[in-house]
Structure formats: structure tokens, C-alpha cells
Write a protein that binds this DNA or RNA. Structure first.
Lengths: 369, 369
DNA sequence: AGGATTTGTTTATTGGTTGAATTATTTGAC
DNA sequence: GTCAAATAATTCAACCAATAAACAAATCCT
């Protein structure tokens, strides 16, 4: 119904095809030739050549030495994402540290800065000012490498609304913080929940499943829901609050006012106190998620990752028992591969994914400058 | 990442714009003129004229008498969806009846056939053969009105995989039924879960929220999840199994092998036996869904609709208590507006939505014939 | 009756893809 | 050592679809 509600699309065919070519290069293991791209996309070799010219001129692609190939014929020129093209600035603010990283277009982390300090002692404005300093340093480092930043994204451990407002971030002690107003980097800024961005980080590393749940166990418990390769943020951006899913209706009282929330049985302290209880509670809650969303993969991150071996059996037992379709297709449980950097990495990924998905906008901007 | 993985799009600009124009007409309360469509879409009047000509030639739009308007200027010709254009065949098989309906392009039910009979007594092949007879009758009735059917969709109370296979439909006693193989109507056939299609039916009636949960309480309990105007089917098409979400971990044993499933506390018998218990259990399970997916609207359908007034307070009490963001934005609970026909209507809607979203395909087909 | 106004069509132009022909660069055979 | 075959990439005329601007049609207002 509202699928193609977009204004119009006249000759933005080119924008689409630029993205198609760029993504084809990005998703290729080897360095594809123009002819290979033509075959993969269905576009004419002529068209691919023209598009590639634009992408090279805009510093998004580079031509490499002859790609390894056998047989007769003129050797192809290999194409790859330009590591000196536009990069992404990933930012994170958490209870006891600030962090920033620069990721280039190919997905490689080029610079990484961390400041350890308890952010709960500072007002939001001061914390964000400190983060601004860190961001400036990262930007200089990027500039020294010849990398221009296409934008920035910030991971926050709290609820985030569409405009980058944070109504509440309990563990930071924030309330109604207008992040974009307090953190002006002169770059497009995206603000999102920490678990959401960590999920995106995992999506990028895991070549496999495009549909999975990322569960982050810290003091609270958050989850990022990735459906068909895209993060689902919910109607108001407040999805993934798995920590307050009811596990034992008449159980322990929770600081949210309800009782029996998962957080009381599988939060950081609860895991330390009784891993078996935590695993069972997690298994019950995760079974509910799988029954609802039909997910095939669950990734345990944050504080759960180091405890994975101790939790696995208990969780899987509940999944086998409570997931209706467990007999038809198993649910895969795995630990997150990115460590504590997941959210920051995911944030940077959001920026470069933006460039990859709409190169035409970047080209227009780069040309205007 | 995989957003624009589509093969190519050369001059399928036209396909997109045809859809845009058609949807603009469909979503207009009044019968818009070509000029009004031009203003709404941003396309030129000339372009709109050309597109409208194609749509009229393909019997998707009709030109009406002058639309009511005031002021100077040449009077406009009103445009509207053609009620004699392609229609959709909606089918449903359930425990104690078979049903078929013909819905025209404007969304009006033109014909409706129901056969009451216990389907549990028949093997799947026989039940589908009976349904085929009903479908043929519906098709004749449509032809008598000058309506050609663009396709058919079937609602089944069970799990459905991508290819239309039904691995299991417990209440019908089906197992591994290949529906498309047993029901050849000579039309493109879509098979989907009953709750999913009912949710689509509600989406069409409710002009409002494009993100909601539809819960259908029959013997079992199913749910259709509509996110941003689109049904979410899950990785394997098995989403929405809310009936087996755990409510009381150590509670009543369920026929699925687990214990404490929602179905045991809010299934048809349980509602009749103790509405308050059912409401509390529903409230707990629905709170989990809202915490996970950040839904603003929940629609109670199927057997819940007539019991709505008796369930409402109990459910809302739990939602207020257990939904983390309840204080920030309320969750709206309402009864389904379509009755028992919801799934069948939704099925037919799927077909006509397909035509509305891709009119170019229909035009090509119509021209080829 | 005549100007104003709005609708819808016609015509030349432009952006972008296609397909065929052409050029470029290698391998392999005689 | 030269030539044919093969593959890669570019050039160029043709075509499709949208745009902008001019034009025709049909009404209202004075």
C-alpha cells in the first residue's frame, strides 16, 4: 500500500544503478572486472563502464593491478572499494568510557580512541563535550590519512527517538537529552541505541544470516532485531527492550515497576550469582522471541559473550522445549564475534553503509564541494 | 546491504510511475483529476496523462463524470479504480467451513460463497478438491460481471512455507500438504497463514496505523505482525506463533510439549472458563511483544472480538504495568472490525494489492492475452 | 462578449540505457 | 614470428521515458 509512496523517480535510475554497481563490488570476494559486474548485474558493459567512471572519479572505487585470471584474452582491470574514499565516524558513550573510531569505506578500522571515565558523574552536556573533543581528534587522524568523513553515528545506552533525542538513558542518568543540539560536529549525525548498533556491527561481520537477534547483557539487557538484513527500530524507535519481557509473572520486582522481568534473572549480577537461573530465564524469553519472529539465529553479546559456554546448554534446552518449530528447523545460538567495540563499529558501519547504499548523494556532495 | 539487490532497473521507471499514479488514485478519497495526481506525485501533467492513458487502456482506471469542484477553469475528468478491472479471489479453509470470495479492484466484495462442513474428516486432497469447486463457482460469478481474476490467495490455519507447502496444520489434521500441487486453479496462487491474512484484511480497513499486531483467538492463537504497512512473515514464514509464548513457565502442560503456553490460558475454552485469567495471560504475552517490537496498536480478532469488552481492562492493566514505554506513549487496544471473513478478505486483498503495486505486470499480461 | 483560470495535449529537448561495431591486449597454434 | 581466437573495455547511433513550454479546450467572472 505505502510501498512506493516515494515522491517520484524520474531519471534516478542512475542513482539506483550506481548503488547496484558499488554494492556488487563490495560484496565480491575477489576484485571484479567491469565485465564481471556486467554479468552479475545484467547491465550492459557500456553502462557499467560509464557508472564505474563516475564512481572512480568520486573516489569510491579504485582500479587495481590485473586481477588473477587464467586463459586467453585481454586482462581485466580489477575494481575494489577505495580505502581512501569517504569514511565513517563511529562514536559511543557508555557508563565508564567514551570511544570513537574511524572506519574506511572497505570496513577497516583505521583509528580508534577510548577515554575511560565515569560518565554518570557528569551532566550530559559535559559528557558530550568530551566526546566532541575525541571526535575532533579522530577526524584529524582521518584527514591525515586523506579520508574525508561522510558522517557520524553515536551509540547510546538508552531509548532514542527519531530526531536523536534521548528521553531516558537510565544507566547514564540522562533524561530528555537533545544529543544533536549538544554535539555539533559539522557532520550528519545519527543517534541510535547501543544494542541496535551492536547488532548492525554483528550483521557486517557475520556473512551469514540476515535475520537474527542480538542480545546484549550489561547492567540492563537490550536487543537489536535484524530482519532481512535491516535493523528493525519499531514504530517509535524503542524496539528490543527484551530486558523487560516477563519471565516469571509473580517473580522478583523490577526497577521498571513490573515484576518478573528478564533483567532480574539474567542481568549482570544475576548471571554472576546463578548462571543456570540466568540461562533458563534467557531461554524462556528467547523462545518467545523466536515464536513471534521466526528467527534462525541468536547472537549473545555484551557481557554474555564471555559467559557463553556457561549459558549455552541451559538456553538451548529451553529453546528446544518451547519453540514450536524447533523440530522443523533448529535455532542457532552463537557468541558475538566483536568485543566491546561492537556498538562503535556498528555506528561507523551505519555511516559507510549509507554511502554504499546511496553513492549518488555522496557524488553530488563531493562535486559541490 | 542487500537493499537494492534487485537485478537491474533500466527503464522500468515507467513501471514505478504507473504504480505511483494508480496508488495515488486508490488512496484518494475523492476522484482525482490528472492535474491533481500531478500535484500529488510531482510528475508532470503530461507524464500523468500518458500514464493514465495506459491505465485506462488496461482497464485499471476509469474516467468518471466531472468531479465536483468550484471556481473557474476547464472542468476536470475524475479518475477512479475500475470496478470491472481485474479482481482477486480470496479463499479460506478452516476447521468447519470452506469459503471463497471475489473482491474487485476497488476493494468491494462482489461475491461470497461458504460451505459448512467439517474438514477434519477429509483427507487434504479431498478438502482442496471441494475448495476447487467453490473457487470455480466464484470464478464463473466473476466472469458474469466481466471481472477477470488476477490471482488467488488461500488462508490456512497452520504453518506455511514459502512455496505454499503446509508442513503442519494441527486443527485440520494436515501434515506436509503441497497445496499448489493439489489445488490448480489456472491462476497464480498464494498460500499463507490465516492470522497473517486476517492481519492484512485489518490493515486495509484500518486507515490508521501501519504497524500493529493482529491476534486471532480460535482453538489455537495466532498473530499477524504488520510492520510499516507490510506483513512480516519471518525467516521461514513461521512468525506470529504467539500461542506458544510462555506465560507461566511452570504452568499447565501444552499439546506442543512445553508448559505454560499462552494457548493454555487464553485459548477458546480458557476464555470461556475464566475471562480474567485469559486477559491477564494475554496482557503478559502482549506486553512482551510490545517491549520487543514497539507496537502502538493491538487488534484483537477471531474469537476475541466478541469478548473484547470482557477482556479489555484485564489486558490493559498488564500492558500499563509491564510495557517499559507505557508511560511515554500508550498502547491502543481495539477489536477487529472484520468478522470471521477477515482472513478470506485479506487473501483477496493480497491479490488486488499485487495488481495495485505492480500494474505494469498486469498490463503486460493483459496485452499478451 | 472578453479576460482569467484551470485542465489536458502536443512538441522539442534531455538524460540514460541499449546494442552493435570498434579498439585494445592477451594466449595459443602453426 | 606471425596470425587467429578470446576476452576486456570504449565509442556511437538509436530508443525510451520524463520534462518544460507552448497550445488548445472548457468553464467562470465581470
Amino acid at each position: 500500500m505505502n510501498a512506493s509512496r516515494s515522491p517520484v523517480r524520474q531519471s534516478s535510475v542512475r542513482a539506483h544503478n550506481l548503488a547496484l554497481v558499488l554494492q556488487t563490488v563490495a560484496n565480491s570476494a575477489d576484485r571484479p572486472s567491469r565485465a564481471a559486474i556486467s554479468a552479475a548485474t545484467g547491465l550492459t558493459r557500456a553502462t557499467v563502464s560509464a557508472l564505474v567512471d563516475d564512481l572512480i572519479a568520486g573516489r569510491l572505487l579504485t582500479e587495481l593491478d590485473p586481477a588473477p585470471r587464467t586463459g586467453a584474452g585481454r586482462p581485466a582491470a580489477g575494481l575494489a572499494l577505495n580505502p581512501d574514499g569517504p569514511g565513517g565516524l563511529g562514536l559511543e558513550i557508555n557508563v565508564d568510557y567514551l570511544a570513537a573510531c574511524v572506519v574506511d569505506l572497505t570496513g577497516v578500522v583505521r583509528h580508534r580512541f577510548v577515554t575511560r571515565a565515569d560518565q554518570r558523574l557528569l551532566p550530559a552536556a559535559a559528557a558530550l563535550a568530551d566526546l566532541g573533543v575525541l571526535a575532533a581528534r579522530a577526524r584529524e587522524a582521518a584527514a591525515a590519512d586523506g579520508i574525508e568523513l561522510a558522517g557520524a553515528a553515536l551509540a547510546v545506552p538508552g531509548l532514542v527517538t527519531a530526531g536523536g533525542l534521548v528521553p531516558v538513558a537510565p544507566n547514564l542518568g540522562w533524561q530528555d537529552v537533545d544529543v544533536p543540539a549538544l554535539l555539533d560536529l559539522g557532520l550528519p549525525l545519527t543517534v541510535d541505541n547501543e544494542a541496535n548498533l551492536a547488532a548492525i556491527g554483528e550483521l557486517r561481520t557475520d556473512g551469514g544470516a540476515p535475520t537474527f537477534l542480538y542480545v546484549s547483557g550489561e547492567i540492563g539487557i537490550g536487543a537489536g532485531i535484524v530482519l532481512n538484513g535491516e535493523l528493525y527500530r519499531g514504530g517509535r524507535g524503542w524496539s528490543g527492550e527484551i530486558g523487560h519481557v516477563t519471565v516469571y509473572p509473580d517473580g522478583r520486582p523490577c526497577r521498571c515497576g513490573a515484576s518478573g522481568c528478564l533483567e532480574q534473572y539474567a542481568g549482570q549480577e544475576a548471571v554472576a550469582a546463578d548462571p543456570d537461573l540466568a540461562a533458563a530465564a534467557l531461554g524462556i524469553a528467547l523462545s518467545a522471541v523466536v515464536n513471534l519472529l521466526d528467527l534462525g539465529v541468536i547472537v549473545l553479546g555484551g557481557g554474555y559473550a564471555p559467559e557463553f559456554d556457561r549459558l549455552r546448554d541451559g538456553i538451548e534446552a529451553e529453546l528446544r522445549r518451547r519453540v514450536l518449530t524447533a523440530g522443523l528447523a533448529p535455532v542457532t545460538l552463537r557468541a558475538a564475534t566483536l568485543g566491546p567495540d561492537a556498538a562503535m563499529r556498528g555506528a561507523a558501519d551505519v555511516v559507510i553503509t549509507g554511502v554504499r547504499e546511496d553513492p549518488a548523494r555522496w557524488l553530488a556532495r563531493a562535486q559541490a564541494v
